[in-house]
């Protein structure tokens, strides 16, 4: 257990030491999205009855920040350690693959949550957020963050160079988050694209997370939580299987 705690502490210390890059920068990015999109679309779009566009946008941006940073933390830490070779310091000690997985995922969820809280605090002066069902907010942030953190572990282990990781991030994570309803309600889409959105797990994360703020969503939050949890469990099992086999870590 001490090994797990130390690895978790090390992973948190790692991102905290470069907090400008890992925490403040994503918060600033999200606030810029909020200011620009909010200003341009505030008077043109009302996604839910009684909810203005800027308020609608905030939960989406918070969750997008949580997800992207959870992914970035585990994936970048692992690939850096692999490429510089210091991954041996984690592989030589008696740390089980479950402890390894838990420490990387938990640290990533913590960073994602910290960034998300930062965006939320920065956005509060710009929007009225009723926090209708706060437990849903916590549940989706944790499960969604853990899902992306697991995906980050897979990407960090699979990628042999930064270029491959960037491809993973730019061609998979970014489009799926952007097309998940962060900036719009899927009811504003044509029928076909509404259907397609239901194959995107990120859509359920954003929609369920937003439900926690307004008590309104495109899909039942229970259904969304079910989808996200199943996706997380499948991905966690796959990641643990990779780690147990030592895929690309132990020759």
């Amino acid at each position: 257990m001490e090994g797990f705690k130390t690895l978790l502490y090390k992973e948190c210390l790692r991102f905290w030491k470069v907090g400008f890059q890992t925490v403040l920068s994503p918060v600033l990015n999200a606030v810029l999205y909020l200011l620009i999109f909010g200003h341009v679309l505030e008077d043109h779009v009302q996604p839910f009855p009684g909810v203005n566009y800027t308020a609608f946008l905030v939960p989406g941006l918070v969750m997008m920040t949580v997800l992207q940073n959870a992914f970035a933390n585990s994936s970048s830490s692992l690939i850096q350690s692999k490429i510089t070779g210091n991954i041996v310091f984690v592989l030589l000690p008696p740390i089980s693959y479950r402890e390894f997985y838990s420490a990387y995922v938990l640290a990533a969820v913590l960073r994602g949550s910290l960034c998300g809280i930062g965006v939320l605090l920065a956005a509060l002066p710009f929007a009225h957020l009723p926090f209708a069902e706060p437990l849903w907010i916590v549940a989706f942030a944790l499960v969604g963050g853990a899902f992306l953190a697991s995906l980050g572990v897979i990407a960090g282990i699979w990628a042999d160079k930064f270029d491959q990781l960037a491809a993973f991030q730019n061609f998979l994570i970014m489009p799926l988050t952007m097309l998940s309803g962060v900036f719009y309600s899927i009811h504003s889409l044509p029928g076909f694209w509404q259907g397609v959105s239901h194959f995107n797990p990120f859509f359920f994360m954003i929609d369920g997370f937003r439900y926690g703020f307004f008590g309104v969503s495109d899909v039942s939050p229970w259904a969304s939580l079910g989808v996200v949890t199943v996706c997380f469990v499948v991905l966690a099992a796959l990641t643990l299987q990779m780690l147990a086999r030592g895929y690309k870590l132990r020759a």
Binding site: E2, G3, K5, T6, L7, Y9, K10, L13, F89, V90, P93, P94, I95
Partner: peptide, 12 residues
Amino acid sequence: EMLRIQSGYFGI
């Protein structure tokens, strides 16, 4: 820091 972290990995 590195030596403390390494100690922790070994449960110390």
